[in-house]
């Protein structure tokens, strides 16, 4: 029943679409302001007003407005930002690569680190090294991601001055080639560290748990009995089988990490979609807020869908009808 899964994601998409459509139109006050942002009021002439009212079909019934809105989405028209004086899609797409860089590297790094930490910790269950790692991670789990970012900002801003605190590259530096890459990497260090630190605890706890359960399975005993090396039992046999929950939660983790990136980008003024959303909140630039929101949520839904479709292939024990994994 593949259709069940597709319909789930279709519903998710529909919820996002209707939220994005209804929110600005349901608010008390002028819907045109809620759609175009407060910056648009500065340039608002009666002629422009009539034109915009007509463009968004605001003088028509809601159903007609929805079709006009849908047609816009299909054409890739997410509106126009009067603050940036550019189409929303253009502004968001310009910020997107930085967010993808931060997100992607943090997702890979936090996954790898928590898998290794979880395997080692689970293997040494109850020993001092496991206990201290568990305690340290539990404490870190109590720190909200933005506070981790702030601590790093203060630490490097006040005491350790060797890493850039803001932006994604040095402005007007004229760097190119390898130097430009190094500059980008240096700017990435602090946001990436903050985001990764905030992602590790939950994945580590999950990995450690699964590892402990897996180690009790008969096949691990078989592997040990065959006289395989400890490292081989730990990683190739137990670890490899314990990895599954980490893989299956990747979709959810993408959603969490996107939210985390929003805060981290704001703290380090990293020019991604998160900073864009924060600035649009501040400027009441509703078109950007909506456009960035739309792109980000659709990205997360697609990521969930892809992961969901892939892991049935990785582990045939998981049903593809979307019911099996509901327990």
């Amino acid at each position: 029943m593949k259709t069940a899964k597709i319909s789930t994601y279709a519903i998710a998409f529909l919820i996002i679409l209707s939220l994005n459509f209804l929110l600005p139109r349901m608010m008390p006050g002028d819907p045109l302001t809620a759609i175009c942002g407060e910056e648009a009021l500065v340039e608002m002439t009666p002629e422009l007003r009539t034109e915009l009212m007509h463009r968004f079909a605001l003088d028509e019934p809601l159903r007609k407005q929805f079709f006009v809105y849908l047609a816009g989405i299909v054409r890739g028209d997410l509106g126009y930002s009067y603050y940036y004086n550019a189409p929303v899609l253009e502004v968001v797409l310009e910020a997107l690569p930085w967010t993808l860089l931060l997100l992607g590297s943090s997702l890979i790094l936090s996954t790898l680190l928590s898998i290794i930490m979880g395997i080692e910790s689970g293997w040494r269950r109850g020993r001092n090294s496991d206990k201290s790692l568990l305690t340290a991670t539990m404490v870190m789990n109590g720190f909200p991601n933005f506070f981790i970012g702030i601590i790093l900002l203060l630490l490097f801003g006040v005491y350790l001055g060797f890493l850039p605190l803001q932006g994604a590259k040095t402005p007007y530096s004229g760097l190119s080639g390898l130097n430009l890459l190094l500059d980008i990497a240096r700017h990435l260090v602090l946001p990436l560290t903050a985001l990764t630190l905030s992602q590790i605890p939950s994945s580590y706890l999950l990995m450690r748990n699964t590892m402990i359960t897996t180690l009790k399975e008969p096949f691990v005993l078989t592997a040990k009995a065959k006289g395989l090396s400890e490292a081989s039992v730990r990683y190739k046999h137990a670890g490899r089988n314990a990895i599954l929950p980490i893989v299956t939660t990747t979709g959810v983790r993408v959603g969490i990490i996107v939210t985390g990136a929003l805060f981290i980008e704001m703290i380090f003024s990293y020019p991604g979609v998160g900073l864009l959303i924060y600035n649009s909140l501040f400027m009441r630039d509703y078109p950007i807020l909506q456009g960035a929101f739309f792109i980000v949520t659709v990205f997360v839904i697609v990521a969930n869908f892809v992961v969901d479709s892939l892991y049935a292939k990785i582990d045939p024990r998981i049903g593809i009808d979307g019911v099996e994994h509901a327990h």
Partner: peptide, 16 residues
């Protein structure tokens, strides 16, 4: 429930 789980709730809350 499945549909809502695929949506990043915090981002939606920020928008609303």
């Amino acid at each position: 429930v499945d549909a809502l789980i695929a949506i990043p709730a915090f981002i939606v809350i920020i928008l609303v």
